[in-house]
Write a protein that binds this DNA or RNA. Sequence first.
DNA 1: TTGTAAGCGTTATCAT
DNA 2: ATGATAACGCTTACAA
Lengths: 341, 341
Amino acid sequence: MGKGGWIMVTMVDVADRAGVSLGTVSRYLNGYNLREYNQKKVKEAIRELDFNPNIMGKALRQKQSLTLGVLLYDWTDIFGMSITKAFGEVVEQSHYSLIMCHAEGDLKRRRQKIQFLRDRCVDGLVVFPILWEGCEDLLQKFLDERIPVVMMDGWFEGLTTDRVSVENASASLRAVEMLIHANHKKIAVINGSRTETVAQERLSGYREALRLYRIPVREDLVTYGNYNCAEAYQITKELLSLPDPPTALFVANYYMTLGAIMALNEMNVRIPDDLSLIGFDHFELSDVIKPPLTVIEQPVEEMGQAAAALILRRIHGDYQNFPQERRINTRMLIRDSVRVL
Amino acid sequence: MGKGGWIMVTMVDVADRAGVSLGTVSRYLNGYNLREYNQKKVKEAIRELDFNPNIMGKALRQKQSLTLGVLLYDWTDIFGMSITKAFGEVVEQSHYSLIMCHAEGDLKRRRQKIQFLRDRCVDGLVVFPILWEGCEDLLQKFLDERIPVVMMDGWFEGLTTDRVSVENASASLRAVEMLIHANHKKIAVINGSRTETVAQERLSGYREALRLYRIPVREDLVTYGNYNCAEAYQITKELLSLPDPPTALFVANYYMTLGAIMALNEMNVRIPDDLSLIGFDHFELSDVIKPPLTVIEQPVEEMGQAAAALILRRIHGDYQNFPQERRINTRMLIRDSVRVL
DNA sequence: TTGTAAGCGTTATCAT
DNA sequence: ATGATAACGCTTACAA
């Protein structure tokens, strides 16, 4: 057992070296006023000893862990990770670190993950609700203990939390509207899933656009790819094999957009000549694909930052206008994947 | 300041309820032998009070943080994150959580990140060396304090640490050999970077294969895409515009493979009819692309698990055969992207 | 402004 | 096998 132990320089060491008391060192570190002479002494001692405050002592005393939990879909999901990254950048400035949990495995496994966060005494929680349904009771426990929870990109019914999400309905409305303006009438959509809030909103925008322009909805053009690349690939093939195939396609997520592109490439369907396409999300591959795709860009950084601001406020006890819902607008990147008929 | 505080049930509460002493509860939790009667009492009390041990008390006392650091390239890099995910799954069983740092920003920023890990008193560290050069001195400090560091998928000169990586040279040797067996002689390679160990090994395998079969190396077919999708896209176009273009292409990383595919699609170069291709890594898109690509699959899970096993051993003070280098073999998935000339 | 000391929830060392 | 008690490094009253 060679266990344990960093060689620690403690505040006592600093105090000794500086010839002041422990309390004075603490006050120095926490930005209180010291006599100038002592201030200098302590500063010097800290430098000489290369002192770093031990976060666990602090955490124990203050009953905070300086740790935040993030419940997301998967660690390899670029959308969730981009948001989480921006979130992490901000909270790191306040000395918080992140514990991320992915949703792989069965419900029992996922509930264990949440328990892991409780054991770790996270001071706050960000939840991407997709795939974390069935854990509402556990999340409620955090709320009961006044540990702030922010729902990111969706929500659960019956759980009163702050929320951050994008204006999904208006985003897809604008996308479909643009296709309509280009004289498309047979517009297919590959949507996320039937059951979850974000996908429902995106679909409602699609329907609303068609309604506005008095185009009847063709239910055979409304499909669900479950945010899955391979499913979208398959669906795209089916859509184009329809007796009366669409002239335009709206895809409601990055990975599904890639799947659609792969299918189109394979079928030698050219964009935008044979099919107009608007995708969702703007990540690396969106720039490499030719022609450059017209996409709805979700402001992932802003989303992460908004969640960070919100959760830090709550942690500091500021519960003004709770629960708050931050709706962030998307940007449409207009490029070359839509053809005017 | 409504700060602070989970409502804590402590071991003292459990002890009171069970009518035993604090020490007995501690011993129960740590698996020591109790009198059967007390054992039952304590167990019951824990259940009734819904007690969960406070990790920060434990950490402070034991001078461990139960936290591990991971220095990786980027949070949206599927290769690094897949490994990290597998790593996390294992160490989580031992109650460790992860703090991940990405390498974005300048060197100063990256050094701050490492300092963040020191402040957090991580008990161990996994480093993907790419992009963390210039931090060797900081990493050495961890080693000096006997905090184990595992180099993942590459290494630094001059830093004595355990390592986990794949058999890069033999992997690319086998890939290129397969192309040679299919009678290809003009085999291009898009390699990672000139300067880093993994890429050098992969290139050496390429050269070795050509040497074995007495095919002279054409330096105009040896290119560097810096693991970057867009660069590989550009390079692929250039390679195929050569006066004497290659008949086969070996791409040494996932994102570069995608970039190459995009370029080929755009140029209407068909795989494998017009160009044979072997890629690196096996992730979601590899299965969606048509034809299915022959790829070298890196065993990401095994890599993560190997690092986990290694670091846990070191943490427990087992420094047998240090430093250890774990080389893991790759698998070649033979599918339909290579044509026999 | 500064020093002193109590206490955060554990583990570990004594006795018993 | 168990109970009492002293740490671990820090913050924060309370006194001075």
